[in-house]
Design a protein around this nucleic acid. Structure first.
Lengths: 252, 252
DNA sequence: TGGTTACTTCGTACAGTGTACCCAATAAGT
DNA sequence: ACTTATTGGGTACACTGTACGAAGTAACCA
């Protein structure tokens, strides 16, 4: 599987694409495809088979077109990923959430989590300098609204939203990796652990790692696996929100 | 650049490799290479040119050998990455840190951050089911020691260490991506932003995103860029440790 | 109506990737 | 001297993104 990069081309071209306001040409044959159809096909492949399967040739095949045809609609693969990302962010809820800031942040975090779980390929796209499409803008606006007016500075608001988003990104990445490694290896966590233990006992000096042994085996017994991603998500989210709460209290 | 996977083969073979206890064969020609030399060459390439440049052929070239020769020493690329990771974790400090749990966790987080910054390719290796080599074990032991005896359960200790590690991983990933995107695009954050603004103003309805506009421009003015990774790291780490502190206080 | 021009589709080519499958060379044991 | 275990490495396969250019099509102008 591949890690891909967004954009990288002319910003003007990217924005033109994201906001779909390219001037319709008058001459020449009518285009057989649309950006929408290309994005939909690419999403279908990426959702079902992962980012590694989403090659330009594969997307073109899906549409019954030649590979190079796509380049008439999209400057390159990076820009296609931009549009895919913005499209998927369109699935996020926009309704105002009832409750205090903590309930709102909590809810936004879970919505992002669900999105990543439904489109795990998103986690493999490097997104510093996010594609500034309509849905990315709306997402930022929505998340800022959760913590507006609770006494944080603008810089703190931005940092908090980024922190939450980064946390969810990392947590779901771990969860998805754990899920995928089971498929790829055909081995459950328990099987994997059981396959290692006898060799480890023989090779590694267990007395050298007393805490690792104790904590590792407690956790393994508790979850029947060396890692439980649901528990990790809940634990981390609670700690993070507690940390933000401490700051909010200070600012009061 | 590529996202790579660790292991994936026979656990017995992987552990044999990580702990370097393969039985020396008696017959046949003396091997011209060693696992150590292969790992060193691979690390040199990955550190200097990124994981994308570290192909099996490239590593072999670096050693004056044929590509397929490496497979005499290492089962595959995944296992080579395992050994590289464990080797790099050997660079982490092991001295006990003075101070309370918070000082220790803080210090451990910064040590991990430095390691990632020096070997950014690590961030592209998927590590659910970490390679259980000697240095990975020592790292886990060291980090657990930071929070041993402060009233947390074993499960909480494991979750806390994982949360911190995940946080640092994500934070440094953002920082490295931001650093790399400048090189790859030849455009500073400021230039990037200035190239977008005029088009955005023309395309997007700014009234639709009031918070995003206000906070975005405040942050941009404060840091002279849309994202300051050092500030983000400090802010996030402080929130996280505050969150853990809340839990520790509860357990008292 | 014929010609020009803008625009479309897409085949070919290039330099890469990890590694399965071989065969030849080498050194120890018998 | 012969067998056997082991190493070195060449070739081949099915992929990747996309630059280039040829060929076909539709709207405009004379």
């Amino acid at each position: 599987m591949t890690q891909e990069y967004t954009g990288s081309g002319d910003p003007a071209k990217s924005l033109e694409l994201l906001w779909r306001n390219r001037p319709r040409p008058t001459r020449g044959p009518k285009p057989a495809l649309t950006v929408e159809r290309i994005v939909a096909a690419a999403l279908r492949i990426a959702d079902a088979e992962g980012l590694g399967a989403m090659s330009m040739r594969r997307v073109a095949d899906e549409l019954g077109a030649g590979a190079m045809t796509l380049y008439r609609y999209v400057p390159g693969k990076g820009e296609l990923l931009d549009v895919m990302l913005d499209a998927v962010y369109g699935e996020l809820p926009r309704r105002p959430i009832a409750g205090d800031w903590r309930a709102k942040l909590d809810e936004a975090a879970r919505a992002n989590r669900d999105l990543y779980l439904n489109h795990p390929w998103m986690l493999q796209v490097a997104v510093s300098r996010p594609p500034l499409g309509p849905n990315v803008m709306a997402k930022y606006e929505y998340e800022l609204a959760a913590i507006e007016g609770i006494g944080l500075t603008d810089v703190e608001m931005d940092a908090t939203v980024a922190l939450l988003n980064g946390y969810v990104h990392g947590a779901v990445r771990s969860a998805v990796e754990a899920r995928q490694v089971i498929q790829r290896s055909g081995m459950s966590d328990k099987e994997w652990w059981l396959a290692h233990v006898p060799h480890l006992d023989r090779i590694a000096d267990v007395e050298k790692y007393p805490l690792a042994s104790r904590v590792g085996s407690t956790v393994g017994a508790e979850f029947d696996a060396p890692y439980d991603s649901d528990h990790a998500f809940e634990y981390g989210l609670a700690r993070l929100l507690d940390g933000v709460a401490t700051l909010v209290k200070d600012r009061r």
